[in-house]
Each structure stands twice: as C-alpha cells, then as structure tokens.
C-alpha cells in the first residue's frame, strides 16, 4: 500500500526542504475507505450500541409518562419493516442496475475504439463528480411519472426514479473499479494470451476479467455500503423510506424535541449495524486476495 508514500521527508542530511514537492498529509486515497473505517470498529461497540435503546427504555420506565425510548421501542417494528427494508430494497435494485451499467461502461473505458472510450470517460468523469442529491432531483423532475412502452402505460413512482438516480453515480464509480482491476492485471498476461493466439475479446473475457473478479469484489462492496448509507437521500424526494417514516413517527408522537436524538440515532444505528458485517466480510476478502497474490 502506498499509504506512507504521500508523506515525503528528506533522506539526505542538509537537503533543501524547498526542493521537496508539496504533499498533503494524511493517508492516501483508499478504494475501501468506508469499509476500512467501519470494519475497524470493534464488534462489542456495535453490540453495545444496539442494546442502548431497550436499556434506556428500561432505565427510564416507571417515571410515569412514557419515555422517548418507550415510544421508540413501540415504533421500532414499523420503522424497520416498512422503512429500513425499503432502503435495503432500493439499495439492491440500484446496485444491480449500477453494476450492470458500470460494467459495460468499464469495458467501454478500455475499448480500442477511441470515440467509445471518450464517451465513457466523459460519462464517468461527470457522474463520479456530480453531487448525488442534485442528480436525484434532476432525475425526479426530468423523468415523467409514467411511461408508455409498446402501448402499455407503466407508472414511474418516485422510488423507481430514485433507484435510477442512485444508479447513475454508482455506475460511474463501478466503471472505474472495473478499469482499475483490469489495469492491475500485469501486461504479461495480455502478451501470454496474445502469443497463444487469443483475440482481444477472448483475452478480456477469458483471461483478464476472471482474474479481476476477486480484485473487484472488495471495492464493489465498499460502494454497496456507500450506496446503502446514501439511500436516506430519497426521503427528500418523498419516498417513504426510514428517514421519512421516522419523521412521520415523531410527528405522530407530537413532534417533541426530546424525540429527535433517540429516533434519528436509531436510524443511524440501523445503517451502521447493517453495513458492519459487510465491512468485516469485505476486509476479510481483501486480506485473502492480498495473501494469494
């Protein structure tokens, strides 16, 4: 890992510091930044946090009036089954769509057809750098609320649009993952394959990509975790996912300010708890890939 390579120091005694290139301090960019952070949290801390709500509810019970934690405890089944499950559904669908489009775009990025490559490059640069929420709003407004396909009119509800809106930036990032993995395969593999008479297409599909899958999996899962944590953006588009429902639940409970922390913390906790095993699994996978090479 090039983790420390950004921090340069003069090896030579008396070397002029002004000759050293400026380098920002801190760890280098890491394709697994989210899962590395999340996966680095000890499991007992997550477990402890998960127990916080029932314990707090227990501790504050018997005060007379129902405590915020009792209220949350009452709402929990609803918030999870109707809210969080919908976030998961959105994340699955957006991931599927984004992976499909991203894989195709990634292949276009390494195409020998220059115009195709440029087009893919423009797509990737734009959607990797555009703010997700703005993209979501554009998709929401640009797409009609129903479309007519072969004479059938299919409604296009808000949540479908958010799936599409999340898939765009995701696909651009997946394309970059594909490109990076392909480029990490030594050129010697291309040459060995070429010298055996494989065509370029055969080389990509039968030699290069199969070797890439293992390398792509960890960053791909990192993007899944990022995507999942981004699904609350959909609440701003009126989709009834966890954050929208949390807000509605608090309204039903009279919008009391002491509800804010427990209710939103619970939503946050759900995301962390869901992504935590994914992060641990990703880190385990990554270690395995590293050992094999």
């Amino acid at each position: 890992m090039a983790r420390n390579s950004l921090i340069r120091t003069a090896d030579v005694k008396g070397a002029l510091p002004v000759l050293l290139p400026f380098a920002p301090r801190g760890p280098a960019f890491d394709a697994l930044f989210l899962v590395r952070w999340l996966g680095g949290i000890p499991a007992w801390l997550i477990a402890l946090a998960a127990l916080a709500v029932p314990v707090m509810a227990l501790a504050q019970s018997g005060i007379g009036a129902e405590s915020p934690f009792d209220k949350l405890l009452r709402w929990m089944p609803f918030l999870i089954s109707k809210g969080f499950m919908f976030n998961i559904l959105i994340s699955f669908l957006a991931m599927a769509l984004g992976t499909l489009v991203g894989a195709l775009t990634g292949l276009a990025l390494i195409s020998r057809l220059a115009p195709l490559r440029w087009l893919a490059q423009a797509y990737v640069s734009f959607f990797r750098n555009a703010p997700w929420l703005v993209l979501l709003f554009i998709i929401l407004l640009a797409f009609p609320f129903q479309i007519t396909l072969f004479g059938h009119t299919v409604p296009l509800p808000g949540w479908v649009k958010t799936v599409i809106g999340l898939a765009f930036p995701l696909s651009a990032n997946i394309a970059e993952v594909v490109r990076g993995a392909v480029q990490s395969v030594p050129t010697a593999q291309w040459e060995a394959s070429e010298s055996l008479g494989f065509s370029r297409r055969q080389t990509i599909w039968q030699i290069i990509l199969p070797q890439c899958v293992k390398r792509m999996l960890p960053p791909w899962m990192n993007w899944y975790a990022i995507l999942t944590m981004s699904t609350p953006l959909c609440s701003l588009l009126g989709v009834d996912e966890i954050i929208s429902l949390t807000r509605q639940a608090m309204e039903a409970e009279g919008n009391r300010p002491e509800l804010l922390m427990p209710f939103y913390s619970f939503a946050l906790l759900l995301f962390l708890a869901y992504c935590y095993p994914i992060a641990r699994f990703t880190l385990w996978l990554e270690r395995r890939v590293a050992v094999k090479n």
């Binding site: 593999q189 040459e191 010298s195 008479g197 065509s199 070797q211």
Partner: peptide, 20 residues
Amino acid sequence: KLALRRKVGMVFQQYNLFPH
C-alpha cells in the same frame, strides 16, 4: 496473426501462466 501464432510458440521469463 492467428496463423503465425499457431506456428510460433513462446515461453517467457516469468512463466505468465493464467493464475485462475
């Protein structure tokens, strides 16, 4: 090129086997 490469075999310093 295919006709050429069936006639000419090549072995490299780093073996370059397909690891998968």
